[in-house]
Simulated assay, not measured.
Amino acid sequence: MSFDYNENPFIVIWEVTRACALKCLHCRAEAQHLRDPRELSFFEGKNLIDQIYEMGNPLLVLTGGDPLMREDLYDLIDYAVKKGVRVSMTPSATPRVTKKAMEKAKSAGLSRWAFSLDGPNREIHDHFRGTKGSFDLTMKAIRHLQDLNMPIQINTVVSHYNVEELKDMAELMEQLGTVLWSVFFLVPTGRASTMEPISKEKHEEVLHWLAELKETSTYDIKTTEAPHFRRVLMQRELLKAKSDRVRTKRKDILGRAPKGVNDGNGFVFISHIGDVFPSGFLPIHCGNIRNELLSTIYRENPVFKQLRDPDQFKGKCGICEYRQLCGGSRARAYAVTGDYLQEEPYCIYIPKQARKKKETQMQL
């Protein structure tokens, strides 16, 4: 089946609310304790789900804040599932995450719960989440999922706080029976705007380590805001002379993107009040679903069009032979340089064209 990201996204993220009880250091939403009265209503939510379904029925992820802060959450899930939409959710690990809540979500047809775990112990995770007891609540919630035989996805944000603990995290993924470890690489936006990402050299080291782990782990591994992971996988495949393209060993339960997804390119984010962005980490406002169809914004907005055209990228990303496959994190480029078309600031790779130019200059 052919996917054209110029027409439809592979994944849609809907921030159903910005309310959340946690105080995560890196929160891109800068979550608040109370729900915003401007949130999309249940009727507007159903209309949005209809629009999403009409756009090739992409994967829908309900996020926040904490989605469980919405009383109509299960009704929204039920409505989406009955239309045939695949729905996943990323709730916060708070006392709201009870076994009863999980049973209710499972009955409504939720495909997967995804929990954030940013350290293999209480000290690291609770510090990063800004809330004492978060680690214990998360582990308790995961045990509930295990009891209900629901697929477990774990999201981990890589930062200076935990980069040296990733091997322990990988072992924990095995112990928990995780089906997908989604590894996020920090984008300095929102509350994380004062946080420094790990170095570009460390990025490369972690990406190669993840590629090695992917070959033997019982769970699948994907990255968020690290599209250069695809470049790393490609390089390793070429070195092994097994293939001229990236292949994944195992198929994820919800299905994985047939080609690389990046900010605005196969990916779209809708905020709690209906604002549309290329991703939650790339705060470039492109419209609002209260005034315009989601399909029109995604297909016709100039920002989205630029993001789907790697030939418009600047610096080394614009001349990189991997720009169609990778493209660099557009969100991180924007956060660091103020220009979403600039080169990925945390990629160590030097494109062939740049290397040849340097060699020519040295010979002159």
Results as ranks from 00 to 15, higher is better:
Asp136Ser: 09
Asp136Cys: 01
Val97Asp: 00
Ile124Glu: 03
Thr94Lys: 06
Ala93Ser: 15
Ile124Pro: 00
Lys132Pro: 06
Pro91Ser: 10
Arg112Trp: 10
Thr138Gln: 05
Gly109Phe: 07
Val97Glu: 01
Ser107Gly: 12
Phe128Asp: 01
Thr138Ile: 06
Trp113His: 13
Arg112Tyr: 12
Leu110Thr: 03
Ala108Arg: 11
Asp136Tyr: 07
Met102Lys: 06
Phe115Leu: 15
Pro95Gln: 11
Thr138Trp: 01
Ser116Leu: 07
Thr138Tyr: 01
Pro91Gln: 15
Glu103Cys: 03
Leu117Asp: 02
Ile124Ala: 09
Pro95His: 14
Phe135Ala: 00
Lys99Glu: 15
Arg129Met: 09
Val97Ala: 13
Ala105Gly: 10
Ala108Lys: 12
Gly109Cys: 06
Lys132Ser: 06
Ser134Lys: 00
Ala108Glu: 05
Thr131Arg: 07
Ala101Trp: 05
Thr90Ala: 15
Gly109Thr: 05
Ala93Gly: 14
Val97Gly: 00
Asp118Glu: 14
Arg96His: 11
Pro120Asn: 11
Ser92Pro: 04
Asp118Arg: 04
Leu110Asn: 05
Thr138Phe: 02
Thr138Lys: 02
Thr131Tyr: 12
Gly130Asn: 04
Ala114His: 03
Arg122Gln: 12
His127Ile: 02
Thr94Val: 05
Thr98Tyr: 08
Glu103His: 01
Pro120Met: 12
Thr98Asn: 09
Pro91Phe: 15
Thr90Asn: 15
His127Tyr: 13
Lys104Arg: 12
Asp126His: 09
Ser111Asp: 11
Ser116Glu: 10
Arg112Cys: 10
Leu137Met: 13
Ala101Gln: 09
Glu103Asn: 05
Arg129Thr: 02
Asp118Met: 07
Arg122His: 15
Phe115Ile: 02
Ser92Gln: 13
Ser134His: 13
Ala114Val: 14
Lys100Gly: 04
Ser111Gly: 04
Arg96Pro: 00
Phe135Trp: 13
Ser107Glu: 14
Glu103Pro: 00
Lys104Met: 07
Thr138Pro: 01
Ile124Thr: 15
Thr98Ser: 13
Gly119Lys: 08
Ala108Met: 08
Ser111His: 10
Lys100Gln: 13
Glu123Met: 11
Lys99Tyr: 11
His125Lys: 03
Phe128Glu: 06
Ala114Gln: 15
Ser92Phe: 08
Thr98Ile: 02
Glu103Met: 09
Ser134Met: 02
Pro120Tyr: 14
Gly119His: 11
Leu117Ile: 13
Glu123Tyr: 15
Asp126Val: 04
Glu123Leu: 09
Gly130Trp: 07
Gly119Asp: 09
Met102Gly: 09
Trp113Val: 08
Phe135Thr: 00
Ser134Tyr: 11
Leu110Gln: 04
Gly119Asn: 10
Ala108Leu: 05
Gly119Leu: 10
Glu123Val: 08
Ser111Leu: 13
Arg129Glu: 03
Asp136Val: 07
Arg112His: 07
Ser107Asp: 11
Lys104Ser: 01
Ala101Lys: 12
Ala114Asp: 07
Asp118Gln: 09
Ser111Thr: 09
Ser92His: 06
Lys99Val: 05
His125Leu: 03
Ser116Tyr: 09
Arg96Tyr: 15
Phe135Leu: 00
Lys106Arg: 14
Arg96Trp: 08
Ser107Cys: 10
Lys106Gly: 11
Lys106Gln: 13
Leu110Trp: 08
Lys99Asp: 11
Ala101Asn: 04
Pro120Ala: 14
Pro91Asp: 15
Leu137Thr: 14
Lys100Asp: 13
Lys99Arg: 14
Ser111Pro: 01
Arg112Ala: 14
Arg96Gly: 00
Thr94Tyr: 12
Pro120Asp: 10
Lys106Asp: 02
